[in-house]
């Protein structure tokens, strides 16, 4: 167990290094540099600026400096937001994205498990057909359309009630979070419902369910204790990558609902070629993604004793 964890963590560190290197190379192959956004400056000022940000050094040298700084946990200062540390940007805005993402995953998981279980109970009957139709819709409609529709319905609700009950955009209270996180979680919810349904239908035919029935256990007990508990396991496996994907993929929802998350800063940084912010956010997100997957794999080993980690 310990050896497994160690091996996975080591592989994770190597992966993060790879991500950092790939980002560095991709970023530096973009024509231009972050200083080009500023107004025309004299060659002298430009030279000073390059010196300040270390752009006067060669590529490999910059790479080594960046790597050694990164190992010390310092991503440097943003080019476009003067004197703002990249670490501060991440510290200020990542919690927003993470809150939104976790809430979305929470809604998606609850919804997916409940709907999936319902479709399995009412297999091939009306509730099943309706839910599976909605699931296909949820998979096929792009998230920005849902975001737009979500905002539109908020506007309509507020108009109908004559006051701003649920805020349409922005961030701060639970009211701000509710609709964006629901919208963000919708795709994942559809995916999990599908998974839960097939998993439930597979479990029904297992021997231990027959044994439980033969023992004379109540159907409710069988459903919750045996069927549901075993069917949830595959759902847990995909939850890890989904948490990471949702947390890092909330750009659109953040954009539509004007939420000050990290995604917005990344898009902005790429447009302005803000080297340090790009590196910081990519490495941070990459590490988050990699270690979330490892964490879920390890937790999975605890939850399901049948899984032997090696």
């Amino acid at each position: 167990m310990l050896a497994y964890t160690f091996k996975r963590l080591l592989a994770g560190v190597v992966t993060v290094w790879f991500i950092a290197t790939a980002t560095f190379i991709a970023m530096h192959s973009v024509p231009g540099d972050p200083l080009m956004n500023d107004k025309a400056v004299t060659a002298e000022i430009r030279a000073n600026l390059e010196k300040k940000y270390g752009l006067d050094k060669s590529g490999p040298e910059q790479y080594l400096i960046f790597m050694s700084n990164m190992l010390r946990g310092d991503f440097g200062i943003s080019f476009t937001q003067q004197n703002r540390k990249v670490n501060d940007i991440i510290r200020d805005h990542f919690p927003v994205s993470a809150t939104l993402g976790l809430l979305a995953v929470f809604f998606a998981a609850i919804g997916g498990i409940v709907w999936g279980a319902l479709t399995a109970i009412y297999r091939n009957r009306l509730p099943d057909i309706i839910i599976m139709f909605l699931v296909i819709l949820g998979i096929s409609v792009p998230s920005f359309v849902f975001a737009a529709l979500g905002q539109l319905s908020l506007v309509k609700i507020n108009q109908l009630l004559g006051s701003s009950v649920i805020p349409v955009a922005g961030w701060g209270t639970f009211g701000h979070m509710l609709v964006p996180s629901l919208v963000l979680g919708l795709g994942t919810m559809a995916l999990l419902t599908r998974l839960m349904r097939s998993s439930m239908l597979e479990v029904v035919n297992e021997d231990y369910i027959k044994t439980a029935k033969a023992k004379g256990l109540s159907p409710i007990r069988i459903f919750f204790k045996h069927q549901l508990r075993n069917a949830i396991l595959p759902v847990l496996t995909v939850l890890g990558p989904q948490i990471a994907a949702i947390t890092t993929g909330g750009f659109v929802v953040e954009l539509v609902f004007a939420i000050p998350g990290l995604g917005r800063y990344f898009v902005q940084a790429v447009q302005q070629l803000d080297y340090t912010v790009i590196m910081g956010t990519t490495v941070f997100y990459g590490a988050f993604l990699v270690f979330m997957v490892i964490l879920v794999d390890i937790i999975y080993g605890f939850v399901d004793p049948r899984v032997r980690l090696q």
């Binding site: 790879f18 991500i19 980002t23 991709a26 970023m27 973009v30 890092t248 993929g249 990519t282 990459g286």
Partner: peptide
Amino acid sequence: VALPFLLFMILFKIA
């Protein structure tokens, strides 16, 4: 696979 997909899509697209 481990590369954050959307981030790299944007980055490559600009690159």
